[in-house]
Design a protein around this nucleic acid. Structure first.
Length: 825
RNA sequence: GGGCAAGUGGUGGAAUGGCAUACACGUUGGACUUAAAAUCCAAUGGCUGCAAGGCCGUGUGGGUUCGACUCCCACCUUGCCCACCA
């Protein structure tokens, strides 16, 4: 019987229904069984799924089904990261209700995900915009407030004028908004922050325990956390009592400091310049820098601009009077917002000093240019060397001097050895509607009051006007805004900002463990059993944001005593992008391929198979309309194999009665089991599939005549093996064929995962490659237990080998058992 | 400027230091067919040769080794991440 598009759609629908009705993928808490938690990064419900989703979720599905077959108690949940700006933008543009729009998209996505045949436990489905989810966002926020980890402060923040909201540091990419790519501005605002910096050290240290994370993700996080050791040095400002702190990692160059520079936003700037002779010039400069966009200010290629304040600072190591400048190349966000400038040993300072005629002094000697003087410098020397012009430290190697000077400065109380972090506290306030309301009330008498736990959730009002203008829409909803103070019952008003949606996604993997629990954030015992996530799969774009925040939340829950783990995700796989014509598929480029259309043409199994076969999961994948035909053809071949060549046979496979052809197929069969099993564990889905193709090719060559019961049994074994090994990749077809073989299992998963027999892998006869001086000249087909001496004799007496030895004398004979020999002449 | 990947046929890609190009796509030829599709069979790195064969070949240049796509050094190119980070 032929296998057609009509058949695949019938078969796929049939099995999706059986899986659903028989609850094949339902995960039940059972501490007797070994669990396995497989998770993908849940989608934003934009409506249709795209090839990126298909790739991500097919990978997790293969792992999930594989682990289920192996007998693990697998939990594989799915949900939606459902709050966020696209829904709100749709509301502004088309006047639809964001909730209605979002739930509509979720329905569509669910249908498409089911069409792919993914092995989800749908009973655990969640959406972050559900009240019974975001209620717990608010609960977590209150706990953080209680522990002093959530706090409000006024400070300069990143402001995206196009999204009309604030952004976290992690959301600013090259000075632009991560979502809309517009330039980010600085604005002074009162906002809510999470004290993630309290966890800097733990977030850094525990990266070393993540042995199964990609190295580059770990490197990116380390980089982002940015720990640097240095010294904070106290400069006195001349004629005042003010102390100016600067941070440096190069305290060995302190004797070469010839001026000090402040960021224009530095708090001391105001007192330094007020009343100065050039006050207006100075203020104009500060204003000019403030007007610059973050991206241009941080570009690094700008000319370094600055102005002299007219004031001096005293270098505490030598009492020297050095001028205080203000310049745009010093950033308030890093260190203390002030630097000591050493133009001879820092290229930025060098450029600035030359520009403004500031003095230079060499304090580290370049070993390759011992006679170098200041006048001969055309660039700063940033390498190592011994100290000069540094009083009692002269002659010390600079790396040693870093320690010695630091210790000395601590003794003299003119500096302190310290650590600076790049990581900032996480700004979570957003001036948007479609998010979790921050559960806080402002009372004139009581100040900031948290909403009592019993009043949760603070409901997000529905059916309101969303215009995109006039700040947060919640400001214009009196029923929401006006509330009695929980302390004094007087009129008060609610916080109208909502939480950044990364808050929602920082703990959803815990919620899945007891998704329907309406009493608590998650069940401690269930989370204790299911967590941590054994295998997490998602895009590299979340290497910092989501993964860092989730690690922070897990550590916070540990401190609350709700979990006992330190890290949420044991194994992490970051899958590559799907490209078309060499470019990332995107709606704006118009080069998307709709998964739904592919399913309609070839079925979900062919799509799954292609997307895994075309490239290793971490690499970019180039979509190819032709190549998917190959996957479709391969599935057809398997169908025909079962349809036309599987006949029942009573015979058992006994090694003694097998002929050479039988043994070869048996051996290929066992090799394939071994290879596919190892490959799935190592994310090598492409080679797992190719080894299944090799087994199919071997079966095609293997001939069985009528009545050859032993050969039929051998072939049947191979057929059953192919179907089982294929089942994680192409589950629908595998289920159908498995049931046609007369299996009694409800699902092929219950048949278990095939095991290979080590003894079946052994070969009686093997091929040995013979080389002369490393070049292959001959092949020998010999008994597997041939000795080195026998092989040597065989090789040296071979005509071809002799020809290539050209009568020369053998110097060495290399023998690699079971593989090759090499004659060196 | 710093860090991390990667560079292999016409294409996607395989190769615990041991036969480079598995598997697939594409192409070419053949079988089946009135014809086409589908399917099946065969060939398919380059140069050279009637053939057997020979030589060359994994970004470039060196090195280690009996033997290097693989390990080491330098360089080139591409991609990603970070970056006026003090």
């Amino acid at each position: 019987m032929a296998y057609s598009t009509k058949d695949i759609h019938q078969i796929e629908a049939k099995w999706q229904k059986i899986w659903d009705e028989k609850k094949i993928f339902k995960a039940t808490f059972n501490s007797e069984r070994e669990k396995y938690y497989v998770l993908e990064m849940f989608p934003y419900p934009s409506g249709k799924i795209h090839m990126g989703h298909v790739r991500n979720y097919t990978i997790t599905d293969v792992i999930s089904r594989f682990k289920m077959s192996q007998g693990f108690n697998v939990i594989h949940p799915m949900g939606y990261d459902a709050f966020g700006q696209p829904a709100e933008n749709a509301a502004i543009k088309r006047g639809v209700d964001p909730a209605q729009w979002t739930y509509g998209c979720m329905d569509q996505m669910r249908t498409e995900l089911k069409r792919m045949g993914f092995s989800y436990d749908w009973d655990r489905e969640l959406a972050t915009c559900d009240q019974d989810y975001y209620k717990w966002n608010q609960w977590i926020f209150l706990k953080m407030m209680e522990k002093g980890l959530a706090y409000k402060k006024g400070s300069p923040v990143n402001w995206c004028p196009s999204c009309e909201t604030t952004l976290a540091n992690e959301e600013v990419i090259n000075g632009a908004c991560w979502r809309c790519k517009n330039d980010v501005q600085q604005k002074d605002l009162e906002q809510w922050y999470l004290r993630i910096t309290d966890y800097s050290q733990r977030l850094l240290d525990d990266l070393d325990t993540l042995d199964h994370w990609p190295q580059r993700v770990i490197a990116m996080q380390k980089n982002w956390i940015g720990k640097s050791y240095g010294v904070e040095i106290f400069f006195k400002v001349e004629k005042t009592e003010d102390i100016l702190s600067v941070f440096t990692t190069r305290v060995d160059t302190i004797f070469g400091a010839t001026y000090v520079v402040l960021a224009p936003e530095h708090p001391l700037v105001e007192t330094l310049i007020s009343g100065s002779a050039h006050e207006d010039v100075l203020r104009a400069f500060i204003q000019k820098v403030a007007n610059e966009s973050k991206s241009s200010r941080m570009s690094g290629e700008n000319k370094k601009e600055g102005v002299y304040t007219g004031q001096f600072a005293i270098n505490p190591v030598n009492g020297e009077k050095i001028p205080i400048w203000i310049a745009d190349y010093v950033l308030m966000e890093y260190g203390t917002g002030a630097i000591m400038a050493v133009p001879t040993h820092d290229q930025r300072d060098f450029l600035f000093a030359n520009e403004h005629g500031l003095p230079l002094r060499i304090v580290i000697q370049d070993p390759s240019r011992p006679d170098l003087v200041v006048d001969g410098m055309d660039a700063a020397y940033e390498g190592d060397g011994n100290l000069v012009n540094s009083q009692r430290f002269d002659g010390l190697p600079n790396r040693e001097a870093i320690k010695k000077i630091g210790q000395w400065m601590e003794q003299e109380k003119i500096g302190t050895m310290t650590v600076h972090w790049r990581l900032r506290d996480w700004l979570i306030s957003r001036q948007r509607y479609w998010g979790t309301p921050i559960p806080v009330i402002y009372c004139e008498d009581c100040g900031i009051v948290s909403v009592p736990e019993t009043d949760l959730p603070v409901e997000l009002p529905r059916n309101i006007q969303i215009t995109g203008e006039g700040g947060s829409p919640l400001n214009h909803v009196p029923e929401f805004l006006n509330v009695a103070c929980p302390c004094c019952q007087k009129d008060a008003r609610r916080e109208t900002d909502t939480m950044a949606t990364f808050f929602d996604s920082s703990w959803y993997y815990l919620r899945y463990c007891s998704a329907k629990d309406d009493q608590q954030v998650f069940d401690k015992a269930e989370a204790g059993y299911w967590m941590a996530v054994d295998q997490y799969v998602g895009g590299i774009e979340h290497a910092i944001l989501h993964l860092l925040y989730s690690r922070f939340f897990t550590k916070f829950f540990k401190d609350l005593g709700l979990v006992s783990i330190d890290e949420p995700f044991i194994r992490l796989l970051t899958q590559g992008m799907v490209l078309k014509d060499g470019e990332v598929m995107s709606k704006s480029k118009g080069n998307t391929v709709d998964p739904d259309a592919i399913i309609s043409k070839y079925g979900a199994d062919a799509l799954r198979l292609f997307i895994l076969f075309a490239a290793p999961p971490e690499d970019q994948l180039e979509w190819n309309d032709n190549a998917i035909e190959g996957s479709w053809k391969f599935l057809n071949r398997i169908w025909h194999m079962v349809d036309q060549r599987y006949l029942s046979s009573e015979k058992k496979i006994v090694k003694d009665i097998l002929d050479e052809q039988d043994k070869i197929l048996e051996r290929t069969c066992h090799l394939t089991i071994k290879k596919v099993t190892a490959d799935i564990d190592n994310y090598k889905f492409n080679t797992a599939i190719s080894s299944l193709m090799i087994l199919m090719n071997a079966m095609d060559k293997y001939k069985v005549q009528d009545g050859q019961a032993v050969k039929q049994a051998v072939l049947n074994h191979a057929i059953r093996t192919v179907i089982q090994l294929l089942s994680p990749f192409a589950p629908h077809l595998s289920e159908e064929l498995w049931s046609r073989l007369g299996a009694s299992d409800v699902s092929i998963i219950q048949a278990g995962w095939p095991r290979y027999d080590e003894s079946a892998l052994k070969q009686d006869e093997i091929t040995i490659v013979a080389q002369v001086n490393g070049k292959v000249r001959q092949n020998f087909y010999v008994s597997a237990d041939i000795t080195k001496e026998q092989l040597k004799e065989l090789t040296l007496s071979d005509e071809k080998i002799q020809l290539h030895m050209q009568g020369k004398v053998m110097r060495k004979f290399i023998y690699v058992p079971g593989k090759l020999v090499n004659v060196v002449v």
